[in-house]
Simulated assay, not measured.
Amino acid sequence: MEWIIVSLASMLAGFVDAIVGGGGLILVPALFATFPAAPPATLLGTNKSGSVWGTAIATLQYSRKVRIRWHAMWPAAVAALVGSFLGAWAVTLISGEFLRKLLPFILICLLLYTLAKKELGKNHAPRFEGRREVAIACAIGLTVGAYDGFFGPGTGSFFIFLFVRLLGYDFLNASASAKLMNLASNASALVLFGLKGHIWWHYAVALAVSNVIGSLAGTHLALKHGAGFVRGIFILVVSALILKTGYDAFLR
C-alpha cells in the first residue's frame, strides 16, 4: 500500500512541478504521513531522488518547444547550484526559524503583486541582452539557489516570479527557465543526501517513474495552453504555499 500512495503522490507532484514548481507541497507531506517514524533527512532525500528526474524531463520537453535563453540560463544554473551548496552550509550554522515566520508574508506580497498586475507575464519581452541579462540571471540563480539549500519551500515560484518581473519573460518561458534552475539545485541536494546515506533507493525508481509520468502530462498542458494557464496555476500554487507555510510557522 505504501508503494501505491507515494507513487500516486509523486505523479501528482511531477504534474504540478512541471507547470510552476511546488511539487514538494504534495510529495513531501505524503512521505512524512506514510512513514512517520523515518528520519526527516531520509524522506527529503528520497523525495529528491524522484523529483529530480521529473524536473530533468520537464526541462528537456520545454527546451524542445520554448526558446530558452541558454546564454543566460546556463551560468544562472551554475550560480543556483553554488547557491544551493552555500545555503545548505549556512543552515548548519544558523537557525532558519526567522525565515519560517517571514516566508508567508513574502509569499502574500508576491501573490498580491501578481494579482494586481494582470498583464504581468502575459507577453514574452526580455528586457536585457548580453552580459547584463547574464548578470541578473546569475544573481537570481545564486540568491534563490541559496534559499533552496537553506530552507526550500516555494523555490520554483520564486524563480518564475523573478524571471517574469526582472527579466521580462512570460510565465511559460519563466517556467521553462525555472526548471533548469530547479534541476541544478535539486541535483546538488541529491548528491549531498546520497553521500550521507539519506535515500531509500528501493523507493527511488518507483517515485522517479511516477514523477516523470506526471511531469510529461504537466509539461504538455503548459505548452498547449500557454502563459495564461501557467499564470493561473502559479496563483493557485502560491496560495497553497501561503496556507502551508503560514500553518507551519504559526499554528503547528
Rank of each mutant, 00 (worst) to 15 (best):
79 A>N: 10
202 H>F: 14
91 V>L: 14
26 I>V: 13
137 A>C: 12
212 V>D: 03
89 W>A: 14
51 S>V: 07
241 L>W: 00
148 D>M: 05
119 E>W: 06
217 A>E: 04
157 S>W: 01
70 W>S: 08
211 N>I: 00
180 L>V: 08
228 G>S: 10
182 N>Q: 06
37 A>T: 14
59 T>R: 02
150 F>C: 08
12 L>I: 11
3 W>L: 15
189 A>D: 07
79 A>K: 13
56 A>M: 11
147 Y>A: 10
12 L>V: 13
32 F>N: 05
234 F>R: 05
50 G>N: 11
7 S>L: 03
66 V>K: 08
249 A>M: 15
155 T>E: 04
178 A>R: 03
233 I>S: 10
193 F>Q: 14
101 K>T: 06
203 Y>R: 08
87 G>D: 14
105 F>C: 05
130 G>M: 13
188 S>P: 06
2 E>M: 10
104 P>L: 04
229 F>N: 00
42 T>I: 09
213 I>F: 12
142 L>N: 15
130 G>P: 09
130 G>W: 09
154 G>A: 09
23 G>C: 01
220 H>M: 06
241 L>C: 00
141 G>H: 03
225 H>Q: 11
56 A>R: 02
90 A>D: 12
79 A>R: 07
87 G>R: 08
164 V>F: 01
18 A>T: 12
191 V>N: 09
235 I>M: 12
141 G>N: 07
211 N>W: 06
80 A>K: 04
173 N>G: 15
72 A>I: 14
64 R>A: 08
81 L>M: 15
157 S>N: 15
41 A>D: 10
156 G>M: 10
140 I>C: 05
56 A>P: 11
214 G>F: 00
209 V>W: 05
68 I>T: 11
205 V>I: 15
195 L>H: 10
141 G>M: 06
14 G>W: 03
19 I>D: 00
94 I>E: 10
223 L>P: 02
181 M>C: 02
13 A>G: 04
185 S>K: 04
162 L>T: 08
202 H>M: 14
40 P>H: 05
39 P>H: 04
250 F>G: 10
151 F>E: 14
3 W>Y: 13
